[in-house]
Design a protein around this nucleic acid. Sequence first.
DNA 1: TATGAATGAGAATTCATTCAT
DNA 2: AATGAATGAATTCTCATTCAT
Lengths: 205, 205, 205, 205
Amino acid sequence: MNREHSPKEKAIYQAVMELFEEGADLSSLTVAEITGRAGIGKGTAYEYFSDKEEMIAGALFYNGISFIRQIYEGLSKEKNLNDKVNFVLLAMEQQMTKANCILRLIHIMSDNSMISQRMRVMEKERVEEEMFPVDMLKQILKDELKDDQTLSEEGLTYLSVSLFSKILCYGMMIRDERFLDKEKREELRKWICQGVCKEFEEISA
Amino acid sequence: MNREHSPKEKAIYQAVMELFEEGADLSSLTVAEITGRAGIGKGTAYEYFSDKEEMIAGALFYNGISFIRQIYEGLSKEKNLNDKVNFVLLAMEQQMTKANCILRLIHIMSDNSMISQRMRVMEKERVEEEMFPVDMLKQILKDELKDDQTLSEEGLTYLSVSLFSKILCYGMMIRDERFLDKEKREELRKWICQGVCKEFEEISA
Amino acid sequence: MNREHSPKEKAIYQAVMELFEEGADLSSLTVAEITGRAGIGKGTAYEYFSDKEEMIAGALFYNGISFIRQIYEGLSKEKNLNDKVNFVLLAMEQQMTKANCILRLIHIMSDNSMISQRMRVMEKERVEEEMFPVDMLKQILKDELKDDQTLSEEGLTYLSVSLFSKILCYGMMIRDERFLDKEKREELRKWICQGVCKEFEEISA
Amino acid sequence: MNREHSPKEKAIYQAVMELFEEGADLSSLTVAEITGRAGIGKGTAYEYFSDKEEMIAGALFYNGISFIRQIYEGLSKEKNLNDKVNFVLLAMEQQMTKANCILRLIHIMSDNSMISQRMRVMEKERVEEEMFPVDMLKQILKDELKDDQTLSEEGLTYLSVSLFSKILCYGMMIRDERFLDKEKREELRKWICQGVCKEFEEISA
DNA sequence: TATGAATGAGAATTCATTCAT
DNA sequence: AATGAATGAATTCTCATTCAT
């Protein structure tokens, strides 16, 4: 949720996210459900949004941005790449308990629905500072580069997407019942963090 | 497409896949569109499927299975892990040109729509031999184990999911305009194959 | 069921009556249900009937005629009006256990559905000897007239319709839980038979 | 039509009754026909009714109640049983000109269609004062009992159903072309009224 | 003659969107 | 500005009927 949004817009965004977190299928969400949950009139929503897709895509977009920003801000406390990656994985895990939100968000952004089309439009129009997942990861990696290390643009891109894929991978694995156990998860995170660090060292060498 | 399917079922599956490959949003596909494309009457579809979801989920499911099987069969020609991974990446790349099908398939399987729910049901009911992505990758890795190597179940799972995430990663990267160039892609595949082999060696050691 | 009907026609009639007796709503019966029950192909039914309505109306019509004829034939054993009316009431009661068939039949004949329209057409085209409820009752009353009694056509019509209404009345009452008891029913029949006889005596005097 | 109904509900009820009176078969009435006649949008009907059956059953139910109430109120002007029965017969006759409404209403209530099922549900939920046909007739008979007369519950039930059957009987007979003549009908009513009175005297004696 | 696969017209119902209040 | 009643286009699904085998 961003500062420039009116209370009604926020209410709509909030309502969409709640329904999303409760497991609703976004493509079959109705305006009545959204406005009902938001506690405002159906007509009112159309004073602020041109159509249903804008409500949903907007909610996901600003929520995603806000989540990314929170993570990025939280990262400043972490000293090294290993801990940073671990922090991101933990943040993801917390979100996951809310009906797999991040994973679902990523899915939605890469399907061909009206919602994802709108989100891509929003992404293109977004102001510079707002960051989307892969961009954030790229930034983490850039921040990590010591003076004596060099990394080509391709290398950086590869590393950030590889990191992204590992995070996704973690998200997928912890949905499995074999990873309900806290310690198992911790071990998995350790593996992933190490893997990322090693790859970073090798490529940035 | 499987052998036991009647021509009409195949026509429906074929139609769904064509529309999917043309970029249609599966959750807003209509029965009229599907049967129109399949060249059969609307009512006919309901002789073979109980509802729309079954048509779409069925199409994706059997198509996915068939794609996986093709890859697995093709793998037998490849001698080592490096070449096998390369083969999988290439197979994926070919599919990708058809509207990122595999990626989208994975996405659909993990969202909360009716279609994905149906696919998960189908997955549970599937016969043993049919393999889904991660299972296939696990098999590839198992096949690779030499007599003198040991690998815990956890290690195997991690490796297969890691491999899966790398493949996903490749899929995402080649959507980027910077990887339109064939040589760039080849180089990327080389990196990935090497990374996979190295990780395999380390963990199975 | 009439002698001139082919086995397939009989099978259809039989199927409709079974479904009817099982409580099915005739206006929502489907051809598939009927032919499925009859054990013949859907197309076959159309070799013998021009449409669905003909199947249902025909079944009801010939079944009704056959029921009426059975009663009329059974009546010959009864010596006087009192016993004859009692016989009709008992026959009705037996039928009633089969999902109120006679009552429902009468209802169907007097609503405005396609089925009843068809039955009325059939009634007009029927051959002389076939008798419908009120006609049968009229005949019973005529048979009862002694040589020294006279009865105008109006009187006869009134008496037969009055008798009909009393039979209907019996049919309705025994659906009530207060008349589950056999003795209660017997008493009720006695009342009705007496009432009919008295009215007959008065008017035919 | 009841006071508590919104204008749209009334419009639906009105439309259903008009179509009914014009002879339409209720079980093949469509929502499009009803809303078209009511002059409202198809979707609007669903704001007030959960489905088509509720529209039709509701229309019949509230119309029936209102008709019964009108008759019962009109009865207060009549001094004796004979005149009261005559009044009911005349009221019925008037309704009959509108496509046999009362008879058809009774038929519908006793078939196995969705509509009748819904009406029976409504009947169970109805408030006390609202009366259905047989209840009204029972009330007429109760009102008629003098202080010196006694009548068992069974007797009362028999009499009211007998009266009901005679009314039905009148309804059936006047559909016949032989009773198109006004005088014939008057004579028939006289007969029926006398019959009812006589039976009442005998049983209540 | 018997069949049932194929069909498409038609029905109920939903829901995004508008607009009078 | 806020509302929600009204709307009808659009969608799913059913089923009587046909016709090639």
